[in-house]
Design a binder for these strands. Structure first.
Lengths: 346, 346
DNA sequence: ACCTGGCACTCAGCAGCGGCGAGTGCCAAT
DNA sequence: ATTGGCACTCGCCGCTGCTGAGTGCCAGGT
């Protein structure tokens, strides 16, 4: 029983199972793949693979199905990232080519996530560029009403956060000179600083405020701190939910937990955060039980970092059933990540 | 065959069918409801109701199921909006009470939509306040790099839109004095104007620009116009997608088209836009085929306008299968719309 | 004019049954 | 190490007959 053939058998099983969605038997295997040996031999290999926990039978006298561990071995054993087919390449061009003209971050991410979903026929996710190291570019204060104003925070990555502030009725109204002065002080304190530094610097603004303004100033500062905190917490965009229910999707159990996890974006973000790219392929894969979250035990995630320059600023990926077409998903995720990095580098 | 009893029979059929999800027969009906007549009588009523197209049988020798028209008659025949149960009232308090402290519009809508989804166990949707009549409060220009800047638009409703602008490389860089000057001119032209007026006023800014600045100025103005246009187009937030796949949800056909419609937010927004509230209940209902969109033929929508003051600025609602608990949905939608209006009025 | 009990009829759903066939493990032979 | 043969397992599929819920109609009662 030669070692390399066993891997070939595993690969064949995964491929057939992904394609047909049915347990695959020894006979069908030799027919569909040129393995050059008889079914009986394959059966021996299969017994060994089962021994190793890479495949399993749903019931006696049925074909074999890959286990999570089997998929893992399959993915790790992939020779290299398959290049995109011309059709896929064209699809990316078509879906993203036009949109690159738009320089609005929201727009670009929106288009990209849709493209990735359509390309992989799965749920696609893109994390907003991480702004932990973004720097404050500008703080704007806009009065809307005597006791109400909007605080707008702009970072050097082009992200904008806003908070509206209501000054408590027992405090004096906020005059326009105070707004102007405060705007200047806030900008002086925070401009060019990272969010954690900015928060520290704001304390000084707060203590140096004149007593009669203290209440209003503290409201504004609190709102600004909240906006700064938000730049550290992550957001994401998502597309392709409808792919979950497609005939071919094939989530075994109900997909309610999957939808719940998706809606609870924190879960997905945490999941992405704990994935680190394989240096060779630039892509990271989590399969089934490797995902700690309970509801996602028969899901798999393929993700990759992206970012302007060499630096990874955030991640994107796809989520689907463990029974997914890994080579295609990996190729698409990598291609889209590179494309997005290129667009953002401008 | 007294007329009012026939309506009672229809009501009973709808209620039982919604509760059990199974066709309801004459015998079961008299057992579960105190109708005071025999099954045979009910059968006659049923035959008449079927004649009118209000109910139908899935197959011969099965119970009856309400048709879209039947649900419509049921809803129209509801005596009044059922008041919320104490439990529901408490649930609203619990879900929204704390959150009201936050004054950030995004936050409030997010919490509210989640609450509505949880309350009705359906997909909930809230349209962002319509800003067609919002007025420009402030325009901010922030340089990020020599050829790149961010345009931020703030309206008097507290909404913020941003666009990033790249100045073409063949044009001169944008100096800080130009930014300052332009900022002033843009604000002078647009402040206090509605978006359509502002767009018109921007033309003047464009033509009065010095020739050497014309290229950069036109880029900025274009971005600002795009942001102004966005204040007219609608956005929405959504929650409870997972409710679609719950056991009890009971969408007959595959729910792929429903998910697609939901992801294609335009469809939902258009749907909401064309609903007008019933003056009495303050709520509007669309059932099955009444919804033109093809994929939503066995869905129903219950929606209500909301807004600060008496004015309706946007709509919110729930989407579920035609076989939904209308009284509860209507009561919840109305209550949440009122609650939200109250919060926004502050 | 309406209600009701009785009656014959329809038909979806379910359980039981048997055959088919894909698939397996083991073994002896090459 | 590979292979053909063989006995065995067992899920799936189609058939059958039964059951029971539900219907429509009718004749008789109020």
């Amino acid at each position: 029983m030669t070692e390399p053939r066993r891997l070939a058998v595993l690969r064949a099983i995964v491929e057939d199972y992904v394609a047909t969605r049915e347990p695959v038997g020894s006979k069908a295997l030799v027919e569909r793949h040129a393995l050059g040996v008889s079914p009986a031999t394959i059966r021996n290999d299969m017994a060994a693979l089962e021994e190793e926990g890479l495949i399993a039978q749903p019931h006696t006298s049925a074909g074999r199905v890959p286990t999570d561990k089997g998929y893992r071995a399959f993915v790790d054993g992939l020779p290299a990232v398959r290049p995109l087919s011309p059709a896929e390449r064209r699809a990316i061009e078509r879906l993203l080519g036009d949109g690159a003209r738009s320089l609005d971050l929201d727009d670009v991410l929106e288009r990209t996530v849709r493209a990735l979903a359509q390309l992989t026929q799965q749920v696609a996710v893109i994390q907003y560029p991480s702004l932990a190291r973004a720097r404050v570019r500008h703080v704007e204060l806009v009065p809307l009403a005597p006791r109400r104003l909007v605080v707008v925070l702009i970072t050097d990555t082009g992200r904008v956060e806003q908070r509206s502030v209501e000054v408590a009725p027992e405090l004096p109204e906020v005059g326009s000179e105070l707004v102007t002065e405060l705007r200047g002080r806030l900008n002086a304190a925070t401009a060019g600083r990272r969010s954690d530094e900015a928060v520290a610097a704001l304390d000084a603004v707060l203590t140096s405020a004149r007593p009669e303004d203290a209440g209003a100033v503290s409201s504004v500062v609190a709102a600004l701190c909240s906006a700064l905190a938000a730049t550290r917490e992550e957001r994401m965009v998502l597309a392709g939910t409808a792919n979950l229910v497609r005939e071919a999707s094939g989530f075994a159990t109900s997909l309610a937990p999957v939808l719940e996890a998706i809606e609870e974006q924190v879960v997905v973000l945490r999941l992405l955060a704990e994935m680190a790219d394989d240096p060779a392929s630039g892509v990271s894969v989590r399969i089934g039980r490797e995902i700690v979250h309970s509801g996602l035990s028969d899901a798999a995630v393929v993700s990759s970092g992206y970012g302007s320059g060499g630096e990874v600023v955030a991640r994107l990926g796809v989520l689907g059933p463990t029974r997914m077409d890994y080579p295609t998903s990996i190729a698409s995720v990598r291609a889209v990540a590179r494309y997005l990095s290129k667009v953002l580098a401008q």
